[in-house]
């Protein structure tokens, strides 16, 4: 278990070097998307349309934040449960997505795609949303504004504390036996 600082965008090599159990401080741009946005992203790919952001080498954070209070960048912003994105994640991983941030289990299809393409699943602490929001320095809605909290946001994060839960070899901290 190592302590690693990582800045997006990332290379396959950087991702392949991460191991389950590593504590990662993540900085740079991450994009938010959850259920409804994932459905639209994959529908856009099916239609041959361009995605609202470049997936290649990037990170998606599964979060629907609270509204920002006046003068704040964003409201509380902890991870949502990831399995709901499982039907869509392999497709995005094939497009070059390298990092997913959430909480809770992933299915075998997602893990197989991670192994094949070189991607990791990072766990943020579910429910520690006030704490996590302190690491978010900029936030801007870039797509699907009509989805409200579920819109796609471009976040700039600084030292977001996460744990590598599933690495690109398929090692999984949730499956310890």
């Amino acid at each position: 278990m190592a302590k690693v600082s990582l800045t997006t965008p990332v290379t396959e090599e950087q991702i392949r070097s991460l191991e389950a159990g590593d504590k990662v401080l993540l900085s740079g741009v991450v994009y938010t998307a959850r259920d409804a946005a994932h459905k639209r992203l994959v529908e856009a790919l099916d239609e041959g349309e361009e995605l609202p952001f470049a997936v290649e080498g990037n990170a998606i954070y599964y979060v629907g934040p609270c509204p920002a209070k006046p003068g704040e960048v964003i409201g509380s912003a902890g991870p949502t449960t990831s399995y709901r994105m499982d039907p869509f994640a392999p497709r995005l991983i094939k497009e070059g997505l390298r990092i997913m941030i959430g909480k809770g289990e992933r299915n075998d299809e997602v893990i197989d795609a991670m192994k094949a393409q070189g991607a990791v699943y990072l766990g943020a602490i579910g429910g520690a949303a006030a704490l996590i929001s302190k690491c978010i320095k900029e936030a801007e809605v870039i797509a699907y504004d009509d989805l409200g909290t579920e819109a796609v946001r471009r976040l700039l994060v600084e030292d977001l504390p996460v744990i590598c839960v599933i690495d690109s070899q398929g090692n999984n901290l949730y499956r310890r036996d």
Binding site: V63, G75, A130
Partner: peptide, 13 residues
């Protein structure tokens, strides 16, 4: 933090 800053403990309110 939530109590001090008067912000939601979790984003899922």
């Amino acid at each position: 933090i939530a109590k001090e800053d008067q912000v939601p403990i979790c984003q899922d309110t």
